[in-house]
Design a protein around this nucleic acid. Structure first.
Lengths: 340, 340
DNA sequence: CTGAAAGCGCTTACAG
DNA sequence: CTGAAAGCGCTTACAG
């Protein structure tokens, strides 16, 4: 059974004894179409009989709509973004769209890549991971060239953005530690707008209760660098008994860094990570986190992007419901009573 | 600066004062084209001047090549596949292809999804995650309908497959435990062809040294189920002091399950996971693993798929170089000397 | 209520 | 060596 050639619209029309245009209209549910029931049924059964499916490229050329949404990110291999990609894929499929994977670094660094994407009409819209500062210029230009939605960027004129309630999440984490009795709490952060917002939420929550903030520990976005930063922090005499970590990937590194410093979690150091993820319950000890609606952000992103395709508009959406909430596991406890 | 309309091929031709056909030929590097150097330069600078990029859909319709490769998988949010997707994306981009994310479950379960993909000419080729038995029928049909490459499936007539050297990896893991002195070693596996091969490699390695195998512990592919299975195993009196785990995701659950059983790693139980991943060094204790060339498999997959698009052929490729090798961390040690 | 016809933007035999 | 022309498979004003 070799690759049998697929039927054309014209063959369906011939079989149903109508014009190709009519078939096209029933296929696309033309609202102005008045058609006799029996004619419609003839068309539908011809489609069914031939297992007809429209040729995607032909349709795309004619309608200048590709049915494709680009998702530009730095690393799929980050559990937070992997989850968003997964839910975005499902949401897109529900609207007959597919997700094309794009590499932010390449797009920001190679002007031709950018040009081929935009001027080559390869996608109808773009989901863009941001929150990094280094590449924001090129990505911003991209966001203005095509209907786009940018994650995590600060509100920016001309750009449609979507993010979670970062400040609240950090505040919830910080308050949890304060409620347990901690007074020396540090934030392990990284570069970029979302880390900045979380840092601010952390500092503000401390201030609410009159506590001073520690300088931010720069741990970066990956486990390895977060681990090193944490280890260095305690090796240099850092005294925080509570740690709020910017995201789950770095939290894994912080977890390892605390332990490799010879300290115990949660006896010596309590830690809370922002974002919940599949591996958090399985660490030893299990990670206390602040959960945010990650699955919903992927779906919402696709829906907003589809609106953008219909008509571009800037504006910021903050997905703050359900509110960030603490998932208490084993990495937090009251501070050890200091002997001296 | 609104969305200015992008230039057409004909405008380039007009500017360069040649025919559209000629521009197309230089653009596509037609090998039979003899053109004067100065004409070529006129064309090239017209392209540059207008920042011309071919319209992807028009090109796709005419050439019946979309420039798109589908990657059908169950969960992007699995570090092993996320890594493969990431490297596949980079490899595809190097050949001017993009990766479209597809959902295996949807494709296997919704015949229309399948039909739209294949009969709608949405992609030039397909990368398919398999190794599961339940869905192999539908995915096999898909693999025969479009140039495809199936990961992890057993060699099958009519299907092009690619996999790693699973049996050797499991054998390396098992031998490592035997070298440390373990004699009671169990395999924590899951359903599907790749787990079956790893299990066989494990059993054979035991047999080489005259050791009996334990019944396989069915832990599934995710952390949660692996954790429960491990806990149950030890609660029911399981006595293995060495565990070989089918993959890294389940290994995290096994790690947690051993600990929640009140046992210590590696004092009571040593464990080795197949596949290395970013989080393995950061567990407490850090995970000893057998590493396989995951990054290369993504790249190789794209290259094989591109060959399939040129001309389909079945056959099996086993990526067995570099050979699976042990990365010793802290989750393995000699067995505790039994008191009685 | 339905059809004929133009055209989306390319590529590629076919001429010359 | 280069151009004119047909056509990939659809959709959508425009007629009637």
């Amino acid at each position: 059974m070799a690759q049998k050639s697929t039927p054309r619209l014209s063959e369906v029309a011939k079989l149903a004894d109508v014009s190709p245009g009519l078939v096209s209209r029933v296929l696309n549910g033309d609202p102005n179409l008045k058609i006799r029931q029996e004619t419609r049924e003839r068309v539908l059964s011809a489609i069914e009989m031939l297992q007809y499916t429209p040729h995607a490229s032909a349709r795309a050329l004619r309608s200048s709509l590709t049915g494709l949404l680009g998702f530009a990110l730095h690393h799929v291999n980050d559990p937070i973004y992997a989850q968003m990609v997964e839910t975005a894929q499902v949401a897109a499929a529900a609207h007959d769209y597919s997700i094309v994977l794009l590499n932010s670094d390449e797009l920001a660094g190679r002007p031709e890549a950018f040009r081929e994407l935009v001027r080559g009409h390869r996608v109808d819209g773009l989901l863009i991971q941001s929150g990094f500062s280094s590449d924001s210029r090129a990505l911003g230009e991209m966001a203005r060239s095509v209907p786009s939605l940018v994650f995590n960027a600060n509100a920016t004129p001309g750009i449609r953005t979507l993010r979670l309630d970062d400040a609240t999440a950090a505040a919830v984490a910080t308050r949890h530690l304060m409620d347990l009795g901690h007074t020396d709490i540090a934030f392990v952060g990284a570069e970029g707008a979302s880390s900045d917002r979380r840092h601010r939420g952390h500092v503000d929550a401390l201030a609410e209760r009159g506590l001073a903030s520690h300088p931010m520990i720069s741990g970066g976005w990956d486990a390895e660098s977060a681990r090193e930063a944490t280890h260095r922090y305690y090796a240099n005499g850092g005294r925080a008994t509570g740690l709020v970590v910017v995201t789950t990937t770095s939290a894994l590194g912080v977890h390892a860094g605390v332990i490799s410093s010879g300290l115990t979690i949660p006896d010596d150091v309590s830690m809370v990570s922002i974002h919940d993820t599949w591996f958090a319950p399985h660490l030893n000890p299990a990670l206390t986190v602040v959960a945010m609606p990650l699955a919903q952000v992927g779906r919402l992103a696709v829906e907003i992007l589809l609106e953008q395709i219909d008509g571009q508009r800037d504006g910021e959406t903050i997905l703050d419901e359900p509110q960030p909430f603490i998932v208490e596991r084993a990495s937090t406890a009251g501070p050890r009573v200091r002997a001296g």
